[in-house]
Design a protein around this nucleic acid. Structure first.
Lengths: 199, 199
DNA sequence: TAGCGTTGCCAACAAGCGTTGACCAACAGA
DNA sequence: TCTGTTGGTCAACGCTTGTTGGCAACGCTA
């Protein structure tokens, strides 16, 4: 009866470390993998628990519900650099390389993309990330701030489309491209979406 | 014991019309809507049957299984025009407008996109459509046919990314753009992906 | 050593799923 | 009018799901 609050959503060193921290982290890692591989519905709590070598009821105890676990597993920080300190003609290229970096290094974004498409809460989460992390970049870079939403949306479409075909649908040509090829092709597109005066 | 074959997947006037054709069509329409709205797992046969005001067992009788129903509901023809008859500098613009047309008029593509992301069979279906319908266009238009897969994949990424943000995730700026705005922004991108000599 | 909160497992629950087979009503051809 | 086919409903099946509560072992503090 002591811990009514089910989930410690902020895992960044807040209070005393618990003995179960390793278990919690294991569940979270397994959840991210499963969500990324299977989407929200097919990623069952039982499967996640099995991956983490733990009983399903532990998942419930630590994260309250499947929704809670999902929320904890898909808290994403795009780690956006400060684009205002970059030469204007290089923002497109930097945006592509940065996204490729972030996407390759963790399965969280693939998980989020997969879930955002089946699950209402997932879609809402993606809109939040878009508004809080990509939109400010466009606002700081594009010529007329009033156009920032449009320009950011165009960039999001291009970047998410690449991620979709490359990491989720696995279209062979898209999956086989090297990072450099992708950068060379997409950088001018994003550059134009962000900084061109008119379409 | 007469009709072992459960589904008439080709509905285009092959044999004598049956009394149940309306029911079949109703099921298919309801299935497309549900698949588009909910994705593969959440679109239950029971819900589809309810929408079509029919018993769930009828769905099984006419389409064999949920997989069969899905296959019938997402047979997509992109109706690609003959791009070789179009002035070379207009293929980008035509490609955008054509895709917007196809996407707006039927929910099938949204259904396919949603399902292609959670379901293995759905992803396979999308790769087929890509290879059979978009790839030939690139092959006929781009300068070096060996680059056609890459160029087609880039176009697919841009188009699908737009569809994703506009129809599925519903990013407000993307969903609110007019067809003309989208065309103006995306046409040069696709034009470059298809016809530019180098990135 | 006793007490207590924490960590974990086990067994079960109710609900929902795809799927099946028995059964009835309407129709068409003889 | 009889008979076989077709269109459709109903009730149930076996299974999986998220979720819950009880219970045993551990580790700390007094």
């Amino acid at each position: 009866m002591t811990d009514r609050a089910p989930a410690a959503l902020t895992d960044t060193s807040d209070a005393a470390p618990r003995r179960s921290d390793a278990t919690r982290a294991g569940i979270l890692a397994a959840a991210r993998e499963r969500f990324a591989a299977d989407g929200y519905e097919r990623a069952t709590i039982r499967a996640i628990a099995k991956d983490a070598r733990i009983d399903p009821s532990m998942v419930m105890r630590y994260y309250g519900s499947k929704e809670g676990l999902f929320a904890a597993a898909t808290s994403v920080d795009l780690r956006m650099p400060d684009f205002t300190r970059v030469p204007r003609e290089e923002v497109g290229r930097l945006l592509v390389t940065h996204f490729l970096d972030v996407w390759e290094d963790a399965g969280q974004l693939t998980a989020l993309l997969r879930v955002g498409i089946t699950n209402q809460a997932g879609a809402e989460r993606m809109r939040e990330i878009f508004a809080q992390q990509l939109l400010p970049v466009a606002r700081g870079v594009c010529p007329d701030p009033a156009q920032a939403p449009t320009r950011a949306a165009l960039c999001a479409a291009q970047v998410l489309g690449l991620a979709l075909t490359r990491y989720v649908l696995r279209f062979p040509p898209s999956a086989e491209l090297t990072g450099e090829e992708i950068t060379d092709w997409l950088a001018p597109t994003l550059q134009r979406y962000l900084t061109a005066d008119r379409p």
